[in-house]
Design a binder for these strands. Structure first.
Lengths: 231, 231
DNA sequence: CGTAGGTGTTAGTCTATACTAATTCGAGGA
DNA sequence: TCCTCGAATTAGTATAGACTAACACCTACG
């Protein structure tokens, strides 16, 4: 009997998948994800990140420029988008079919995304009618790995008077999500900015077509991402 | 800052949960589960079992008698039944709500049972109407940890002429499960034994009320567990 | 009643992932 | 231009869980 050979293409472990997702999110804007930011996002110590970064670049999932940061390779990006599809399909399924509210799905999906099969995800996606967005309005990558890149503007920066569609709610914090839901601020809602206080004050908006007003503080207004629909 | 204390009551890891389930199944008949049987069931080497057995008895989940085997403590039994509830609720949910067939649910449930929350399992159980049996007819433990102990007889041993209800199908092998399903032999079906060949030959049965006959080979007849319903 | 063969356990090693402590790098202010 | 300080990396260690090889225990058979 030969000594057992190592599987040359092992399934990704839980941790690896988490690192790839974190790097995807951190490098989606600027080019490189910093070690310390990855550490903060995953709640591990920076040396743990250095160690994992070494392993991931050896397997070709990321590109590492020492003291600068890391970027996903196309293979790493594909793996990250697969996890993001799983996460978002799970979140939507749990809210639509099992009565979860959008403030509580995140933790559950976070654990399940590592355990489900691709088959199960596709069955859930079919049961949901191949949805494009998760409960927070984030786009769901396709099974092929394509993701919509939307042109969105934060409510706190949006021009006054323009008609807007609320598209994404950029937080997973249950308390904030409950608050937004109470205020009727969920993806798909139409609104216009009627007034904005200077010096980082709150933004006042009106829902469309009802005209109901809402006042949204500066910090929260930065979490609500909108698509401009013209005047 | 104090040196970080170890969590005195850590969540069970994937492996620990698998060991407890295996020990539960192996010791449900006789008193002790043997090291080598546990190793075979989990597909690990015997010394791995010895190592885990030491850890599990230190944490009070099992009782170990060296060279004899192991038994669950009441705490270990509770943990095992919790996993079995998860597994069986998941299997039923996947078949009822996501179109899985009973031959393919096992592997999926095996992975998910370690990742789901108690909350999710209870939501699934509610969506299913607090079911008592999984797709194979195995009883689902309650959330409180009680499990039905049924008086069942294998079809190969059942008396001739008595009315029987097929209650459990004792295999997870997809090929056999497909075959049983084709033959209409699923939990809940009523039947009687019309004839049995001597010397370990096949059993001939008639479905009730249709009277359709089936011939079931010796080995398969040992997998079909029935409840006697009187004459 | 003693031993052979199998089952169980111990000893020692490996990998993945984490940690702390110590060290090195590099960019921005004096 | 040089130095300093925060960020990143290396060094060394720990833990869970697996493995192989070697040793110990039991029992059933001759």
């Amino acid at each position: 009997m030969q000594p057992a050979l190592r599987d040359p293409n092992p399934p990704l472990t839980r941790s690896v998948e988490d690192y790839l997702k974190a790097i995807y999110h951190l490098s989606s804007q600027g080019g490189f994800a910093a070690t310390s930011d990855i550490a903060a996002m995953l709640d591990v110590a920076p040396p743990s990140v250095s160690g994992m970064v070494k392993r991931l670049s050896e397997t070709g999932l990321i590109e590492h420029v020492p003291y600068r940061g890391v970027q996903l390779t196309s293979q790493g990006r594909r793996a990250a988008l697969r996890m993001i599809r799983r996460h978002r399909v799970l979140e939507l399924y749990l809210t639509q079919h099992l009565g979860y509210d959008w403030g509580n799905v995140h933790a559950e999906a976070e654990r399940l995304e590592h355990a489900v099969s691709d088959d199960l995800i596709e069955r859930m996606a079919n049961a949901l009618g191949q949805p494009q967005y998760d409960p927070h309005g984030d786009p769901i990558p396709t099974a092929a790995g394509d993701i919509e890149e939307a042109e969105l503007v934060a409510l706190g920066e949006a021009p006054i008077g323009t008609k807007l569609e609320l598209r994404q709610v950029g937080t997973q914090d249950p308390a904030r999500l409950h608050y937004f839901a109470e205020q009727g601020l969920t993806p798909g809602v139409l609104l216009t900015v009627s007034e904005r206080q200077p010096f980082n004050g709150p933004t006042t908006i009106a829902l469309v077509p009802s005209g109901d007003p809402r006042v949204v503080g500066r910090e929260l207004a930065q979490l609500l991402w909108c698509r401009a629909l013209g005047t």
